[in-house]
Design a protein around this nucleic acid. Structure first.
Lengths: 107, 107
DNA sequence: TGGTTATTTGGTAAAATAGCCAACAATAAA
DNA sequence: TTTATTGTTGGCTATTTTACCAAATAACCA
């Protein structure tokens, strides 16, 4: 790997890693509907507030979500609709995997 | 999270996690050109053979690549062109992040 | 057969992640 | 001002991930 290839791969991996957690991919799915504040997401997820807050900061640092303060609440939303495309990609892969498995079983 | 939402998020995260490593995203990028055997990839990456082999098995277990034995060599290729779409998504996010940063600096 | 090359697997130590609790900060309400 | 409510941060432990080495496996060749 050249130095440039290495840097590019690290940048890409950093973004993918931010998304690669069940709770965080769930958050992204939810934020596609509308903005949610931390306490609402905490209720939906069923984990400690601090845990959810940390997941949100991981997403924010990767530039996947943005936050906006309203009173004491902090509302999060997708930084770009394109973030949702990852879920589309994942679902395609899952579907293709199933198709491949079926084809294999038929042999 | 309902039990179903949890399971779906875990499935999705498992696939994203398989991709979320600099070396593995680099491998996917390379495999888009053509099939490569482990020793070729090892030379390109510059890590231990066993390390590269393990990265490949992570990708394979996620259904992102397939392998084919030819003599003593094992050739890997993308399981589906759709795997490359992840890189497209990541690049879009990176581009949008830069645009956002520029817009912010202008204020 | 014996040796060589290619790959995978097991072991291990170091580093990164994740989750909870407690403490702190900020804003709103009484 | 005191009291709640909402979020973030630091500290700690447990788990997972990663990389290398060494050993085992597989297929080819002399």
């Amino acid at each position: 790997m050249t130095e440039e290839e290495k840097k590019r791969s690290e940048t890409r991996a950093r973004i993918l890693k931010a998304l690669a957690h069940p709770t965080r991919i769930f958050i992204v799915e939810k934020l596609n509907e509308k903005s949610y504040c931390v306490c609402e997401l905490t209720a939906l997820i069923g984990a400690d507030t601090s845990t959810v807050s940390k997941h949100l900061s991981v997403l924010k640092n990767a530039g996947l979500v943005i936050d906006e303060k309203k009173g004491t609440a902090v509302y999060y939303s997708l930084a770009c609709n394109c973030v949702l495309d990852f879920i589309g990609c994942v679902e395609t892969v899952i579907r293709k995997n199933i198709e491949r498995d079926i084809r294999f079983l038929k042999t």
